[in-house]
């Protein structure tokens, strides 16, 4: 089994951001996540792709693991790494494989 690329320390950080946004029933709606991602100052088309890759069940909302994927991609993008066109297997949360 491939370990998830989101490290436990990062996951804890992302989880605390997730909780601070007031998830309802353990999920965040798009309108709650959007301003956070926009805060990164990344281009909207990049953020749109980040959303596509992280909303794995395409319900327009992110659960904790999906949110971690989104944050991971945003942080990597801010470090200058390109956002992939499709989600590499190591980035898929173990709970969703």
């Amino acid at each position: 089994d491939t370990p998830w690329v989101v490290k436990p320390e990062e996951k804890m950080k992302f989880d605390s951001i997730f909780e601070s946004l007031g998830p309802a029933g353990g999920i965040l709606t798009g309108d709650k996540v959007k301003p956070v991602l926009l805060n990164s100052k990344l281009p909207v088309d990049i953020l749109g792709r980040v959303w596509e890759l992280s909303d794995l069940d395409r319900d327009g909302m992110l659960d904790k693991d999906e949110f971690s994927v989104a944050m991971y991609l945003v942080y990597r993008a801010l470090e200058g790494e390109p956002v992939p066109m499709s989600l590499p297997p190591p980035l898929v949360p173990p709970s969703k494989r």
Binding site: G30, V33, K34, L47, W51, R58, D59, G60
Partner: peptide, 13 residues
Amino acid sequence: QYPTGGSSTNPFL
């Protein structure tokens, strides 16, 4: 897989 264009589940589109 999913319809392209006007994906209502993506708040950035």
